[in-house]
Design a protein around this nucleic acid. Sequence first.
DNA 1: AATGAATGAGGATTCATTCAT
DNA 2: AATGAATGAATCCTCATTCAT
Lengths: 214, 214, 214, 214
Amino acid sequence: MLTSPVTPGKQDKDARQRALIDAATLTFAEKGYDVATTREIAERARCSEGLIHRYFGSKHGLLMAILREKAANVRDVVQVSVDESDDLGAEIEALVMWALDFMWEQRDFMRVVTGRALVDPEVGRFVGNTLNARRVQVFAERIERHRAAGRVRDDVDIETAAQALAGISYQAGFFLQVVFEMDRRNAARIAREAARAITIMIAAPQVKRTERLR
Amino acid sequence: MLTSPVTPGKQDKDARQRALIDAATLTFAEKGYDVATTREIAERARCSEGLIHRYFGSKHGLLMAILREKAANVRDVVQVSVDESDDLGAEIEALVMWALDFMWEQRDFMRVVTGRALVDPEVGRFVGNTLNARRVQVFAERIERHRAAGRVRDDVDIETAAQALAGISYQAGFFLQVVFEMDRRNAARIAREAARAITIMIAAPQVKRTERLR
Amino acid sequence: MLTSPVTPGKQDKDARQRALIDAATLTFAEKGYDVATTREIAERARCSEGLIHRYFGSKHGLLMAILREKAANVRDVVQVSVDESDDLGAEIEALVMWALDFMWEQRDFMRVVTGRALVDPEVGRFVGNTLNARRVQVFAERIERHRAAGRVRDDVDIETAAQALAGISYQAGFFLQVVFEMDRRNAARIAREAARAITIMIAAPQVKRTERLR
Amino acid sequence: MLTSPVTPGKQDKDARQRALIDAATLTFAEKGYDVATTREIAERARCSEGLIHRYFGSKHGLLMAILREKAANVRDVVQVSVDESDDLGAEIEALVMWALDFMWEQRDFMRVVTGRALVDPEVGRFVGNTLNARRVQVFAERIERHRAAGRVRDDVDIETAAQALAGISYQAGFFLQVVFEMDRRNAARIAREAARAITIMIAAPQVKRTERLR
DNA sequence: AATGAATGAGGATTCATTCAT
DNA sequence: AATGAATGAATCCTCATTCAT
């Protein structure tokens, strides 16, 4: 991600907000939320410290703005990155593996978000109700498509399955890989097996399909 | 947990260490690590602030001491709380459900530990290599027993299954229930389904056994 | 020296830096560097403690700022206070005696500077390379003028003589008078005799002058 | 200097005092008075912290004990190190040069003593009235011997000359060499020239001696 | 006599936020 | 609108000294 500093003095509200958000994202990721100072963020964005408070109310408000932006992009990012497939198991695996990679790349910022979610209830709720909820929704939509094609049992609660898959991704992708510093291949194997277990459970019985073919 | 204040002036090193650990556990949980002050902890333990640094080196050292103690008790706590069973699925479900309850009760301290693990690499590694590792081990041992009884497939990697189950417990027990403030029954359902999926995957095929009996 | 407190809230960077330097000079002198607290200095200057760190980086930086200012004024102070003279011995004596008086007046701050110079290498170097060096230079320039007038031997190394005279002034003016609490007249006598010895050594042979008189 | 730790538990008052003084001398020199902790000193002497207070009353008292010991040895140290001579100038130069070497070797402890003398009036007086006074006395005695041999003018105040020489030694030996980090040869040259000036001033006129010989 | 456990006062520094300009 | 100057609250840690054992 590139910073986008502005030319000082000039009046250019949107550009300044953009610059502050970019600078903050970078700085939070590099140093952590607590260690990052509003002064450093403002310097990086090449505008004054006071603007953070004018535009976002507070340091916390600045983080929320970043999160809202991330949340707005969740679906697009996944759609672009993981292709649909006719094979339920393959698609689920692809989704989970992609999540692992994504969280690895975003690990520094993930630390920030997760850390704040633990401490700041507003962040906690936002991550739960919006960020995580949208990730779950993406899983759910993908599975739904397979159900429409008869590849998922009718009696399965897709929402629950999607929650489980998202949770497994988060656990392996962030905690195992990043926080616990587990070997990445090992984390991937665990996630893959768990995803496979979910797949087996929700997949429509193969027998019927075979029977139908007769 | 009860605090165990000591009598001022009297010389009783061990009692003071005990009192400080108890007071810190309580205070960290109530206020969070950052907000809790060493002064408050010392007052609560009824001893001088300096002792924290003499005995534990620093505020961080005090937290590590608490964690080491927790880690030492992990197995016993589980063994006492969750009975063994002849039914693989039942035991796994019991273990996961117990973990959810446990994390709910410990939620405030869980916030502290997880939050610090994200920020302090030493804590991160300790939680990963020791605390979490022992929880995983408990799952593994329980499954192992079922394998010995022929209730688990021979080709299953128990370690991986245990990791997945521990991860699911953590995710649902802490993040869904606590951080994301999801309805507890909902969180429990998700965990239960995921656990069931794992169970199905690792369970020795019932059919064959029946067939064999013929 | 007068303190120069500022009006709270008003924005006047320069005035505040001035006020902090003045307040610190006074407070360091009264209490010593270690005992003086940044809080007291800030209160005296009527501005917030944080400004010390914003403007000077640290307590140490504040002392350095004071020293730089002192160093900038060394020459002027001497020039104003000690008149030139046609008599080498008289001028040297005047310079040394003035130094004794000056150090007596500044004794409290001298303690601070010297004490810090012993402990803080940066201060030590600054005092040696700048403060002391400039005092030496003033001596040297004065003697140089006498040499131009033929009152100092050609083969004398003026730098060395100036160093010796500055050293004698410092020793008698600060250590004997102040630190060792020697009777001031006694200290003055010692300094005067040592200065006279230097004078005798560097003075152009009287014979010539006598000869000239013939 | 070697430390002289004692065997713990055993009752051995003198040895313990000895060990504490040695350990403190070393530790003060290495770290400075303020930074050195009584705990470290006690550990080094292999006895308990409390003993410092029992035997010496306080950290300050421990330093005073060290100083008293140093003062008791001043004369002997000089006598052993600098030979008498029939040449006044040579002997004075030898004394001053020796002082420079001595202070260089002892520079770390010199910092401690001087630093404390500036801050602690009791130390200041002790150094002035005892330590420095004895150094002066040694100079005086040496010069006195030369006067008895007719090599020093009758009208010279030997005390004053000795004070000047001691002062020059201290200034060049400690401040120039150590605190100001001046090149040692340079410091030596300054001290030598100043000593020569004093010598010239106090030396009995050579003419007379020649005349006497006739 | 010796130990070492306990005390508690003391202070520089950081930074989000406010507000004069 | 933008700046950046000023605020002030808040806390971990060190260590000489005391005193129970």
